[in-house]
Design a protein around this nucleic acid. Structure first.
Length: 526
RNA sequence: GACCCUAUGGUCAAGUGGUUAAGACAUCGCCCUUUCAAGGCGGUAACGGGGGUUCGAAUCCCCCUAGGGUCACCA
């Protein structure tokens, strides 16, 4: 095993700030998000990152990003890039970490291996750790045996007191040792958690866990402690799944003579079936939600509300407000089931409240994907996109819906909504009325929402029908749909020429296709 | 299985010994209306169960139950 990278000063400094008032030393907050790059950033991870980020921004502290890539099998460069891209997209910027460095770097654990090696060596010298030559196969067998006998599957500590000769003998067999921590056999370890309070664990229940694997890589619990200390972190805010690991880490802090940071274990986010989030629950990664047309504002806002609550009753909160209000005290203790419906509602809110240009920018990729505009949109396409989105965004909940909702402004070859045809095209006299409307429309000048509406209302009066009887079939004729923006604005944007064409097409459609449809219906009813 | 955490409507969640137990999403109804949204108004719906403590428990304690988490050379 080699340790190719040298890193700078790893000083365990906790920057102290003397408060202007009274001279009380106040520790400057340093927190981190430490994902392992074994997949995309899922919403649980994003929420943990968010809470850390919020806490840092609220307190004027430092937010560190550290990549825990010690699992050689599962870590990938692609995941690193994915996670970084998602964090950036969400706007969760870090003050130290990959791409920007910092004085406590490097920020990839795979580049800090000799630190862990040193610390493990130190523990061995202190008599707090030892070499263990048991093979994974032997351990598996023992675990299995213990399980069958109904005993807890703990490591039995058989290598705890190996002599040098014994070690040499086992090494000669070609065994690669791991380094294990010597857990006290008695006593208890207390975890003081900012959210859970005081949690006590019996040391006798813990076994001698591995610090350094036989391939030279550190385990999570070890690397985590070494780095959290080396990076001067003051608060460890992470998901509750780590609470049970914390006594091991506390033991390590003590053995290494480190000051113990403050812990805050935030509740987990569960899938709707109450189980841990996984692929089978549909979209769970930030990237997937993005692809489904969610805005970062909505995701952030929703995630902030999962496990944390503002003091007031308003739930739609701009990020600045959340930063201002955020506090660890208001984080709840119970796991939360995420509810896409609520996030979708929030998304809809931002879709109609954010500046139009912003929504257009966000929507463009979706319009391209839907084939509505080209890779390099023309001036004309951009104008139409902006205007159609302005008309439509109030009714969309996601960018995907929005792109779908404006599609008929860009494409002529839409089909008519089936139920709409039965309801609005089938009635006797519809073709005639549409023909009449078309004629009337041809004379409307200028062609704007107001003039169109006047023409329609007048025509309805003359024909002695309700305006709706004209409006509904027209909507279907010009958009293929029964729902959408106000018809007159829609037509104005579409332009006279297209409206006339589409009305004509509808009339021909009704005249050609509907008799057959009516007959079929008659046959069914008769 | 052992250990740890948690427990207020379908979901999020306020609440820290005395409240008609907030609010939001969802859902239902009404209004507005050319449709659909949005918006407005209103409705349905909760303290898991059992023991204590107390004049008084959603709030404190114990037990049970349920859910989740951890028990790896994964993180």
């Amino acid at each position: 095993m080699q340790f190719p990278v040298t890193y700078g000063i790893l000083k365990p400094v906790t920057s102290l700030l003397a408060k202007a008032t009274g001279g009380i030393a106040v520790e400057k907050v340093r927190v981190r998000f430490a994902p392992s790059p074994t997949g995309k950033l899922h919403i649980g991870g994003a929420r943990t990152a968010l809470f850390n980020w919020l806490f840092a921004r609220h307190t004027g502290g430092t937010f560190v990003l550290r990549i825990e890539d010690t699992d050689l099998e599962r870590s990938t460069q692609a995941s690193v890039e994915q996670i970084i891209a998602s964090l950036k997209w969400l706007g969760l910027d870090w003050d130290e970490g990959p791409e920007i460095g910092g004085e406590y770097g490097p920020y990839f654990q795979s580049q800090r291996l000799h630190l862990y090696e040193d610390k493990a060596q130190e523990l061995i010298e202190k008599g707090r750790a030892y070499l263990c030559y048991c093979t994974p196969e032997e351990l598996d067998a023992k675990r299995e045996e213990a399980r069958r006998a109904g005993r807890p599957p703990r490591y039995d500590g058989r290598c705890r007191n190996l002599s040098e000769e014994e070690c040499a003998k086992l090494a000669a067999e070609g065994r690669q040792p791991v380094i294990r921590f010597k857990v006290p056999e008695t006593g208890e370890t207390v975890v003081e958690d900012l959210i859970r309070g005081r949690v006590v664990f019996q040391n006798s229940l813990l076994d001698d866990f591995v610090l350094i694997k036989s391939n030279g890589m550190p385990t999570y619990n070890f690397a985590c402690v070494v780095d959290d200390h080396a990076m001067g972190l003051t608060h460890i805010i992470r998901a509750e799944e780590h609470l049970s690991n914390t006594p091991r880490q506390v033991l390590l802090y003590q053995a290494l003579g480190y000051e113990i940071p403050k812990f805050a274990h935030v509740p987990m986010i569960l899938a709707p079936d109450r189980s841990k989030l996984s692929k089978r629950h549909g979209a769970t990664s930030v990237e997937e939600f993005r692809e489904q047309g969610y805005l970062k504002e909505a995701i952030i806002n929703y995630l902030a509300l999962l496990g944390w609550s503002p003091e007031g009753t308003e739930e739609i909160l701009p990020l600045e407000q959340i930063v201002k209000e955020f506090s660890l005290e208001r984080i709840s203790k119970n796991a939360a089931i995420y509810d896409v419906k609520k996030m979708t509602w929030i998304n809809g809110h931002y879709l109609r409240e954010l500046p139009l240009e912003r929504i257009v920018t966000e929507a463009l990729p979706f319009l391209k994907k839907a084939g509505l505009i080209g890779e390099e949109p023309t001036e004309e396409e951009l104008r139409l996109a902006t205007d159609s989105i302005a008309l439509t965004r109030d009714r969309a909940k996601t960018l995907v819906e929005l792109a779908d909702g404006v599609s008929y402004f860009f494409k002529d070859d839409f089909t008519y909504d089936e139920k709409g045809v039965q309801k609005h095209f089938a009635p006797e006299g519809t073709a005639e009325r549409l023909r009449e409307a078309q004629k009337r429309l041809a004379e409307v000048e200028p062609f704007n929402a107001e003039t169109i509406e006047t023409a329609y209302r007048n025509l309805a009066a003359e024909l002695g029908v309700k305006a709706a009887e004209l409006i509904h079939p027209t909507r279907l004729a010009v958009s293929g749909r029964t729902i959408g923006p106000g018809l007159f604005e829609l037509m104005a944007l579409l332009g006279k020429e297209k409206c006339l064409e589409r009305l004509d097409r509808a009339v021909r459609y009704i005249e050609a296709g509907l008799p057959a449809l009516r007959q079929a219906e008659g046959a069914l009813q008769g």
